[in-house]
């Protein structure tokens, strides 16, 4: 092969690759332009903050989901898990008021409780999947029902509400911010950056991709497959806990309908972002773009009255399917 031939090849590959990488980004830019044209308020500080802050819950969870999917797994339980964590957190904090009084220490304890509950729930999923060797789909389908039912039971079919004084104290975690940027946005950004580093620059990220690409190869390369796989679910569980910490101050309550369909939104965001559903390749920044695309669709439909907001789900569905079709075309052209 001549030098020139290699060069042309390399350049061609690069261009094609870039186009695929840019796909989700271009879609995001197109949505922003569309939104700005349809409604002048779209780019206002208020709207941008609103969209980003509300994306934060799904976004934080979707970052964790990216690791799970990259390692060849799936977690359907995150929505129910979020509701359950919120329920445990609220009950725990309410019942500790007589002991600790309303104050920042109690809120910190509540946060720790949320993280711990998420961590534990993720650990249960992970151990059942990697040690007991039950299909991830089955395990998390089961735990999805279990957590949903538990939170409904804890709330006795109604709503669990955080103590009123506590709520006032906790409120700024969602509504407040730092230098004009809301806390949920800051936390989401930090999680995304940390996730990107973890995925692209550490052995853990590389191992996740290896396991998802071919578990046998990973095993024969002395990768501790069970531990890494469990870790993806634990990480996701802890991030569900973190998302719940940001979510509870928004409404100050949890019920059987908290977090419904979050799992689907999180999975959709991961797939739109270019992570391969059957594992082996994951992209955190793509997931972030995916989350933003989904919330912008929602937001634009609400602001512009061209299409009914009730069709939101339908449009998001089309976007997900389209993203997968594009992903497949990339595969074909690589051959």
């Amino acid at each position: 092969m001549t030098e020139a031939a290699i060069n042309t090849f390399g350049r061609l590959n690069l261009r094609r690759y870039n186009l695929h990488v840019l796909g989700p980004l271009l879609a995001l830019v197109a949505l922003i332009v569309l939104g700005a044209m349809l409604n002048p308020n779209f780019l206002s500080y208020g709207n941008v903050t609103n969209v980003l802050a509300r994306s934060a819950f799904i976004g934080i969870i979707a970052v964790g989901m990216t690791f799970v999917i990259t390692a060849g797994g799936i977690d359907l339980s995150v929505g129910s898990m979020a509701a359950f964590v919120a329920g445990v957190m609220i009950l725990g904090m309410n019942s500790l008021i007589p002991l600790m009084g309303v104050g920042i220490p109690l809120i910190l304890v509540g946060m720790a409780l949320a993280l711990l509950t998420g961590f534990g729930a993720g650990l249960v999923n992970g151990v059942l999947i990697s040690k007991v060797r039950i299909e991830a789909f089955i395990v998390t389908l089961g735990s999805m029902g279990i957590y949903r039912s538990l939170v409904t039971w804890l709330a006795d079919g109604g709503t669990l509400s955080l103590n009123f004084d506590l709520r006032a104290l906790y409120r700024p975690v969602y509504y407040g911010g730092f230098l004009g940027v809301a806390w949920p946005i800051i936390v989401f950004a930090l999680v995304a950056i940390a996730g990107e580093l973890l995925m692209r620059h550490t052995a853990f990220g590389r191992h996740c991709a290896a396991i998802g690409a071919n578990e046998q190869v990973a095993r024969y390369s002395a990768v501790n497959v069970d531990r890494a796989r469990t870790a993806t679910y634990v990480l996701l569980g802890a991030l569900v806990g973190l998302a719940t910490i940001m979510y509870v101050p928004r409404l100050g309550s949890a019920s059987g309908s908290t977090g419904v369909l979050w799992e689907l939104e999180a999975i959709a965001a991961v797939i739109i972002g270019g992570t391969v559903l059957k594992g082996g390749f994951g992209r955190i920044w793509g997931t972030v773009v995916g989350v933003l695309i989904l919330s912008l669709i929602d937001n634009i439909l609400n602001l512009a009255s061209i299409v009914s907001p009730y069709l939101n789900g339908a449009i998001q569905g089309v976007v997900v399917i389209l993203a997968v079709v594009l992903q497949r075309e990339k595969k074909a052209s690589e051959q």
């Binding site: 620059h201 052995a203 191992h207 991709a209 046998q216 190869v217």
Partner: peptide, 30 residues
């Protein structure tokens, strides 16, 4: 069984090469 157990066929040469000895290339980051 190099195709099913030895190499990640869908990954590039570099990632395949270092998978077994990845800790030699890692402090915190790779």
């Amino acid at each position: 069984d190099r195709k099913d157990k030895g190499l990640l066929l869908g990954k590039n040469l570099r990632e395949n090469l270092t998978l077994l000895a990845l800790d030699r290339f890692t402090r915190i980051a790779i």
